[in-house]
C-alpha cells in the first residue's frame, strides 16, 4: 500500500517535470559561453563589445531554429573549444568526463569489498 503511494507520487512528479517548455533559453546558452576578451566572465555576464556581438548572433541563430548544440559547434569552429564552458566529449576530453565516474565506481567497489570481507569472516 505504502509503496503504491510512493510510486503514485513519483509518477505525479515525473509528469509535471516532463511538461517543461522546450523553447531554447537564450540566457542559458550565453551563460555557457566564455567572453574571450574578459577575465573569466561568461558572455551573459559581460557587456564588452565582443559579448554584445555574440549575444546578437546567438539570438539570431535561436530565431533561425538552430539547436543548442549547433550553436556551440558553430562557435567552437570559429573560436576554438575555449569559448564553451562545457567541453565537448571527444578524444581529448573523455578523461575529464569519464574519470570522475570511474572514481565513483571504484570507491563504491572498495567499500563493498570491505564489507564483504567482513561477511566472509
Amino acid at each position: 500500500m505504502r509503496l503504491k503511494t510512493i510510486i503514485f507520487f513519483i509518477i505525479l512528479n515525473l509528469n509535471i517535470a516532463s511538461a517543461e517548455n522546450f523553447t531554447l533559453d537564450l540566457n542559458k546558452v550565453l551563460k555557457n559561453l566564455r567572453c574571450l576578451v574578459c577575465q573569466g566572465q561568461s558572455v551573459a555576464d559581460s557587456n564588452s563589445e565582443f559579448a554584445q556581438t555574440i549575444k546578437l548572433v546567438v539570438k539570431d541563430q535561436i530565431k533561425e531554429g538552430k539547436s543548442e548544440k549547433e550553436i556551440y559547434n558553430f562557435l567552437v569552429e570559429k573560436y576554438g573549444e575555449w569559448i564553451v564552458y562545457k567541453p565537448p566529449l571527444n578524444k581529448v576530453n573523455f578523461v575529464l568526463w569519464l574519470f570522475p565516474y570511474l572514481v565513483f565506481v571504484i570507491g563504491g567497489v572498495v567499500i563493498f569489498l570491505l564489507l564483504k570481507k567482513r561477511n566472509n569472516h
Binding site: 574571450l36 576578451v37 563589445e49 565582443f50 554584445q52 556581438t53 555574440i54 546578437l56 548572433v57 539570431d60 562557435l75 570559429k78 573560436y79
Partner: peptide, 12 residues
C-alpha cells in the same frame, strides 16, 4: 552590428 564578423572568428 558586428554580426558577420563572428563568421570569421573575429573577437576584437
Amino acid at each position: 552590428l558586428g554580426k558577420y564578423s563572428i563568421n570569421f572568428g573575429i573577437y576584437g
